[in-house]
Amino acid sequence: MTDDDAAPGRPAPGRAEGEWGRADRSGAPPENWEAPRERWLSTGVRPAFGPRSVLLEVAARLLTPAILTFAVFLLVSGHDRPGGGFAGGLVASMAYVLRYIAGGRHELAAGMPLRPNTLLAAGLLVACGTAAAPLLAGHPVLKVYSYTAHLPVFGKVKFASYLLFESGVFLIVVGLVLSVVAALGARMEAEEEEVRDRRRRGAAGREGGAQ
């Protein structure tokens, strides 16, 4: 409940005047001075299963950007080192799975504003578009174009059209995992909750009827 009160951006009660010690004249610390300034995760946390775990929430918060960066690294470096669109997509979706486990389905929805189907469609569009684009120039399907540039900081950098293709694969994999998680995790959870609500209401109704 305290978590609900501390909405992001709103200072905790008792801290309105800014400095810690100024508000109290009795020597006691102000009320709720120890309340967190903001939340670790972006929604009211209701984990998918079991009680909340602060450790998990903190880990999810800290790791998400790192995991996503790593996923992009895998995607980009795939041509010379282990990685590629498939592995990168799996890693990226792992970040969302972690968020889901830590924060429940609302957290999943907040972390990924696109629906899985949108991701799947975008990925298919990118992959098929890359595949078909050479046809317009009269080349065979999926012909690879590459261009090597010398950039000031990065040195020699190669841009190749298979990177686009791999990005399509990446998006599709993320979409796949998210839609499975949404179907087997989030949606089931939502429905269980609904059933629970109805039972509770049903039980209350029965009691009311008995009195």
Binding site: H79, D80, P82, L120, A127, C128, V141, F165, L176
Partner: peptide, 28 residues
């Protein structure tokens, strides 16, 4: 220099495209 990925994304990219379509269909 990563042979596996060269095969997946370049030499046999058409196979990959087909697989990816299957994956998307399966997801839906």
């Amino acid at each position: 220099s990563n042979l596996v990925n060269m095969i997946i994304a370049d030499f046999r990219a058409l196979d990959t495209l087909g697989e990816v379509v299957v994956v998307a269909t399966a997801a839906v």
